[in-house]
Design a binder for these strands. Structure first.
Length: 298
DNA sequence: AAGTTATCCAACCGCCGGTGA
DNA sequence: CTCACCGGCGGTTGGATAACT
């Protein structure tokens, strides 16, 4: 994807362009497809000239953000998995608010999404505990309670998925997660709950067992646009169906923020509910633990 | 059912560092 | 060296939606 948009000189603008007002706010389907088509042909980068050449009345920044956070083929959106939650907590404890750095270890996740996750889910729990995010209390809670609990639930989910895989394909554990954990935390411990390779190795999980291409295509929560284009061996992008008539169909049926996939997973696989219970990280047991350990005023 | 509050997240903003003229 | 431009990053906002009263 090194081909840059050099064909169009950004400094040469017609008077008409100079009068062109920049558009803001939510992107339309048409704008998305303009951007996708242009990047498919010319590659990404040089965002200001790209925006101009693609005929988008957007800033280069806006195009870059839209592409990276939403449109690029490998973007994953939707529920943050337990493994990803654990990784985010670990990496944040190490690097703080270095969202882009953290995102590098969560394939397909944008820094924006991780940041949003942190600000909404994690900060909410800090608020519930009435303690500061940067306080030792909260850091201890994350390290000695939250992370071990996540590890337990990941292990439990792995066990369940081993059973379920025989009859249904449903796990969405990222194969890259194991690599990330091993790379970042080669010999790590989580407050007494050790993270070892056997806990996460996908040889134990349903993802490996059901890792056929068709399965991945069906369930991987990738960009909504991936059916419209595909990534070639040389990492270039091919438009699968350039027929503009498809736009309407695509818009009507698929431009729905991935709800189909999520609802499919949840409606067909009730056990997923037990996995994605991220909002219930602190049960009565935990609250008691917190009160005892940290004198939290729950 | 209607109004209010909380939550989520896409998108914007401002700052900063790198780069090239 | 200076300046302008660009891309990347982290912080913030505001609209849409869900949950609650």
């Amino acid at each position: 994807m090194d081909v840059k948009a050099r064909e169009c000189a950004p400094n040469v603008q017609s008077s008409e362009d100079e009068d062109m007002e920049l558009k803001r706010g939510p992107w339309t389907v048409e704008e998305d497809f303009k951007l996708i088509d242009y990047i498919a042909t010319h590659g990404e980068g040089r965002w200001n000239s790209l925006a101009h050449c693609a005929g988008l009345k957007r800033t280069g920044k806006s195009c870059r953000l839209r592409w990276l956070n939403y449109l690029r083929p490998d973007v994953r959106r939707g529920n943050i998995t337990l493994e990803e939650q654990l990784l985010i907590l670990k990496l944040h404890s190490r690097w703080g608010n270095r969202w882009s750095k953290i995102a590098q270890h969560l394939p397909g996740r944008s820094d924006n999404e991780i940041k949003n996750y942190w600000r909404t889910r994690v900060q909410k729990h800090a608020k519930q505990l009435k303690c500061d995010l940067n306080s030792k209390q909260f850091k201890d809670t994350v390290r000695y309670l939250w992370m071990p609990r996540l590890v337990e639930r990941i292990q439990a989910a792995t066990a369940v998925s081993n059973i379920m895989v025989a009859t249904t394909a449903s796990a969405t554990t990222s194969t890259s997660f194991v690599g990330s954990m091993k790379t970042v935390f080669p010999d790590d411990h989580l407050g007494g709950a050790q993270v070892n390779s056997s806990s996460y190795t996908l040889e134990n999980s349903s993802t490996t067992a059901a890792s056929s291409d068709s399965f991945a295509t069906q369930l991987s929560p990738l960009s909504d646009f991936t059916y419209y284009y595909s990534i070639n061996n040389n990492n270039s992008i091919s438009i699968n169906n350039p027929n503009p008539n498809r736009l309407k169909e695509f818009s009507g049926n698929h431009y729905n923020y991935g709800i189909d996939i999520q609802s499919l997973e949840q409606s067909n696989n009730p056990w997923l509910d037990t996995i994605d219970a991220s909002e219930n990280l602190f049960n009565a047991e935990d609250c008691y633990f917190l009160q005892q350990q940290f004198n939290f005023n729950m």
